[in-house]
Design a protein around this nucleic acid. Structure first.
Length: 442
RNA sequence: GCGAUUGUAGCUCAGUUGGUUAGAGCGCCGGUUUGUGGUACCGGAGGUCGCGGGUUCGAACCCCGUCAAUCGCCCCA
């Protein structure tokens, strides 16, 4: 008989477990808490859209669209794509679902995204982001609110120290276009001396040359035309309002005139929160203003700002958040008492004690050798153990035993209340352990 | 798409200049010991040495190919 080969996981997907899963959940929980403080409304978005939703809004020439999309035809022959980002789908919904009526609309979401890329540290083909958008607000205060929220999120996650906010403006579309022309003119003169990558970027995406890591490029980048020379008065005022708003809110930032964002739809404010603790993947949260996006999807001109952050990257910075606490482990070292131990475990989990509104977190140990259950119970890390044992009077007795007591966490009362639901019993001290002798059922 | 590094037990890893039947620790299972005690000891299960080909009397080890993982380039969160 042929051996069945176990299917391998898809490249770039992750099976997140244990401490990493706890850190992941911690990031999402913190985001959910913070977004409510800023009154962002929760939205749930489809994981796939018509391909054109992304190709039109992100830009045909960008890498995301030209080589990183998971696109496929459905059975009706329609080209669909697994979302590579949230913004385009949310913009589509804004137009198709009548969300204009809520403008200015503040929404937040999180979930998986898909990009066909080489996986490496902090980068996956299925990855996860948290996302926040303000649609229909042209005011710089919207940019400020979003950035202050991002800053608070990082602080509450305890990772703000190693992360700096890089800020830039790309100006309005006229400013951006003038700057782009100037950059092309400037770099074309020295094209032969640029890196191979940058020679290609010159045609496709000249702004990208500015943050090239190649030494050959850096020499020319230093003297390249700066966006500031091309900013219109309004664009300067807008950026000034954003920066002074951040200063007033106490959010630290630094100007990075080389910061450009890869996607076509960005205008005015562009920002990234960057760390040096994640290898080559320094950007932990990024976003900006995308006033041109709605028109590219056939809607009315609508100002909007947003950001997204990689949950995996944030979780790596957060580090250990601690596994779930274990209050009590229930076990028996005697044959025939497993069912009773199981029944008691269930009661304990379902009973709310008067002294504490939280239920006990209880592990029932039932596998392996009975003789080694005490050892396993201690190794489980539980604070207290409950051993189920035979007793000459009645069903058996239950003894509360100290295992890894580091602090007070009263349990006797709650155990008593749980037992009262099913059993008749009396309490005693047996071998220095507080015990309940079960004499019968109710 | 390109580059570097790495693939040996469930996990972390040894494995000599190529040489009998491929090992350890942890984990798992069983037993002895202990009997308020994470002890100590004994035993057991578990391996297509990533996969395919080549060189050789002989390959985990050398060569070629391939797949995968990790990190980096590109790009991005």
């Amino acid at each position: 008989m042929a051996k069945i080969e176990t299917p391998r996981p898809i490249r770039g997907t992750q099976d997140i477990f244990g401490a990493e899963a706890e850190a992941f959940a911690h990031v999402v929980e913190t985001f959910e808490r913070v977004r409510k403080l800023y009154r962002f409304r929760r939205v749930e978005m489809p994981v796939f859209e018509k391909t054109e939703v992304f190709s039109r809004s992100i830009g045909e020439t960008t890498d995301v669209v030209s080589k990183e999309m998971y696109s496929f035809e459905d059975r009706g022959g329609e080209s669909l794509t697994l979302r590579p980002e949230f913004t385009a789908g949310i913009a589509r919904a804004y137009l198709t679902d009548g969300w204009q009526q809520y403008a200015p609309l503040k929404v937040a979401t999180h979930g998986p995204l898909f990009r066909y890329e080489r996986p490496q540290k902090g980068r996956y083909r299925q990855f996860h982001q948290i996302d926040a958008e303000i649609i229909g607000a042209a005011e710089p205060q919207a940019d400020v609110e979003l950035l202050v929220m991002a800053d608070q999120l990082l602080k509450e996650l305890g990772i703000a120290d190693g992360v700096t906010l890089n800020l830039n403006t790309l100006g309005d579309s006229d400013s951006r276009e003038a700057w782009r022309e100037a950059l092309i003119a400037y770099f074309r003169d020295v094209k032969g001396s640029l890196s191979e990558d940058s020679q290609e970027r010159l045609e496709k995406n000249p702004l990208r040359i500015l943050d090239s890591k190649d030494e050959r490029d850096k020499a020319f980048v230093a003297d390249a035309p700066q966006i500031d020379q091309f900013l219109s008065g309004e664009a300067q005022d807008f950026f000034g309002a954003v920066t002074s708003g951040l200063d007033a809110a106490g959010v630290a930032w630094s100007r990075n005139p080389a910061l450009v964002r890869g996607l076509d739809y960005y205008r005015h404010t562009a920002f990234e929160f960057i760390t040096d603790r994640l290898g080559a993947q320094g950007t932990v949260l990024g976003g900006g203003r995308y006033d041109g996006l709605m028109e590219s999807l056939g809607g009315a001109a609508t100002p909007a700002v947003g950001w997204a952050a990689g949950i995996e990257r944030l979780a790596m910075l957060v580090g250990e958040v601690g596994e779930q606490r274990l209050d009590l482990v229930v076990f028996t070292e005697f044959t025939g008492f497993e069912a009773l131990a199981s029944e008691i475990s269930g009661l304990l989990r379902q009973t709310r004690g008067h002294s504490d509104t939280e239920n006990l977190q209880v592990e029932h140990l039932y596998s392996g050798s009975r003789k080694k259950r005490y050892v396993k119970a201690k190794a489980s890390g539980a604070w207290r153990g409950l051993s189920v044992e035979p007793h000459e009077h009645g069903l058996g007795c239950i003894r509360l035993r100290d295992l890894n007591v580091t602090g007070e966490r009263p349990m006797r009362k709650r155990i008593r209340e749980a037992l009262e639901q099913h059993f008749v019993f009396y309490e005693a001290e047996i071998g220095h352990a507080h015990s309940w002798v079960l004499t019968g059922r109710k």
